[in-house]
Amino acid sequence: MRIRAKHSAALASALVIALAGAARAEPDLDAKLVINGDLEMTTIAPAPAHLEGALGDNVISGWHYRDAATRQMETDDFENPAMSAVDEALAAWDTVDGSEGKSCADCHGAIEEGMKGVTAVLPKVTEAGALWSAEDFINDCRTNRMGAEAWDWDKDPMKNMTAAIALQSRGMPVNVAIDGAAAPFWEQGKEMYYTRYGLLQLSCANCHEQNNGNYIRADHLSQGQINGFPVFRLKNDGLVSIHNRFAGCVRDTRAETFSKGGPEFHALELYVASRGNGLAVEGPSVRP
């Protein structure tokens, strides 16, 4: 209840500012994200070399583009509405499920130890040569190691678990591999990033590279980074997965979108993640 009230207050103040005709704020690049008073986050980092200057000198977390009230919610785990989803996942972590009578904890131990640093390097190519996101690893363990049912890519149990796992990398730099076995996937993702989809003929780059900092209607365009995923969206009152966000952005160009968990979005996830190499893992973060 407290969270909802805060949210409406934020919206109301945003509206007042807009109606007063004041110029809308540029991303506040001086703001510092410190979580729970002691975890300092790298929200602005030198742009990775592979971008060849496409985003200027720095890559910037989506956190900077949000209004002060939304940014504030991410600074304190008691205010971050994603944390109840994390609590549910922590309970699931210890719960036996499936025909093998095992819980995640039986094999991985405490999540703080077993999942430390995992999200920072995902997605990555497996020994078998597949590009896997957190969701793939989780379902592999569930179906092949626990004898449990796979979780739906975009439903709560999965989103909750990816949030709890991301939290174990919080503050660590995103560091996905783009060379070697990852290279062909990365190239595919890059190609998609610059393809102008749909009736509106817009690419990811048209909005998030050429126009970040500008407004499209009321929306302040960010660099479209995924270091904060899964994000808690106040609008949805729930967690949003990376592929769900991609699907929405492609759909909004009036295009036929791609499926969540499909090969195209895996490749795009790797490429977009690599555009944020060096930013701190922020998941689960808060967005309007």
Binding site: Y197, G198, L199, C207, V250, R254, A255, E256, T257
Partner: peptide, 21 residues
Amino acid sequence: VMPSFYNLDDIIRPGDAYTGK
């Protein structure tokens, strides 16, 4: 970046309005 409002060419993966289909 401006869309072409009366055009049928060079459309990649045209969608059915905003359904994503």
